[in-house]
Amino acid sequence: MAANRSDLADITYFLAIARHRSFRLAGLEVGVSASALSHALKGLEGRLGVRLLNRTNRSVTLTAAGEELRDAISQPFTAIDRALEDLNRYRDAPTGRIRLNVVADAVPLLFGSVLPLFAERFPDIEVDIVATNRMVDVVGSGFDAGIRYGGTVPEDMVAQRLSANLRWVVAASPAYLERYGVPGAPQDLQQHRCIGVRLGNGRIYHWEFEGPEGEFALPVHSKITVDDTQALLTLGLQGMGLIYGLEPAFAPYVARGQLNLVLEEWATQGPGYHIYYSSRHQVPTALRLLIELIREVRPLGL
């Protein structure tokens, strides 16, 4: 039987569901609600006369017929997507939608000065940013790309540097330092109040330093632990304790005298921000333009 227009639209939805094994994530990719996707797939299965998906409350899997259909049509539909994306080169105003998974600190530090300019240059491009410190499978979760520190980028991805290396420092409010004193060496932190940092994988971060014998990590005792830089800054500004983080995130408060850097001679540098994406897919024009603009503006050097 010949496919009609409704079949072609529903097959696009089917391929998204097959990639993500999730109606919710597929819906994010194609811009349709999970309930609308479910209704569309039931209609497609009814017209084809076969079941394509096994659905339970916890999982979505492909039937044998679904796997056969996916394998047969994935390549042609990928070629169509690539051809349509290539047309963006001929537009006066490029269009598209970029969905990014970004480590939280990178949002204000990288995008604060870039996104207003990007929106002005490319008003027809939509940008959807999910800011989280938790590592996710960007391809499986429906993202076009991820932004992380260089040392945490998955090895099977194509990566491009977006910033220079980043300096990690210790800071505190003047009121805290006046009351409890200034640590002279990292080992002095054991006698200080420190605000702990929980990483995206749930692990408590060991503060890193560099001394005469090289880099080392130091566990610090913390009665308060947070997983967000804004919360960290709020507590540090209130004099609750010493805080550890990216120097660019602390810089505005240091400039205003609200925070003082300590242990600067022990500060270490780490890999800068990198954007990464699957090597198996063509880079969308909208994403390429965003990468080019970040590298042009260089909000954190390069």
Rank of each mutant, 00 (worst) to 15 (best):
N4F: 00
R5E: 15
L15Y: 03
H20T: 08
R21Q: 15
S22G: 05
S22R: 05
L25P: 06
A26Y: 03
G27P: 08
E29W: 01
V32S: 00
S35W: 09
S35E: 14
S35M: 12
L37G: 00
L37K: 00
A40T: 03
E45G: 07
L48E: 09
R51V: 00
R55V: 13
S59M: 09
G66I: 00
E67S: 06
L69R: 04
R70N: 07
A72S: 10
S74P: 01
Q75L: 07
T78Q: 10
A79F: 06
N88T: 00
D92E: 15
A93L: 15
R97Y: 11
I98Y: 02
A104E: 14
V107I: 07
L110C: 13
L110R: 09
G112T: 08
F118Y: 15
A119S: 11
R121G: 07
F122C: 06
D124T: 06
A131F: 11
S141N: 11
G142Q: 04
F143D: 01
A145D: 05
G146F: 03
G146S: 12
R148Q: 14
D156G: 04
D156A: 07
M157H: 08
A159T: 02
L162M: 13
S163V: 08
A164C: 04
A164P: 00
W168L: 14
V170P: 02
A171Y: 02
A172G: 09
L177I: 10
G181A: 09
G184P: 06
D188P: 02
H192P: 03
L199F: 02
L199W: 01
N201I: 10
G202E: 15
E208F: 05
E208H: 12
F209Y: 11
A217C: 14
A217I: 04
P219W: 09
S222V: 05
T225W: 06
L233H: 03
T234S: 13
T234A: 13
G236V: 03
G239F: 06
L242Y: 03
I243S: 03
I243Y: 06
Y244E: 08
P252S: 05
V254G: 09
A255V: 13
R256F: 11
L261G: 05
E264H: 12
Y273C: 07
S278K: 08
S278A: 13
A286N: 01
A286R: 02
A286C: 07
R295M: 12
V297E: 04
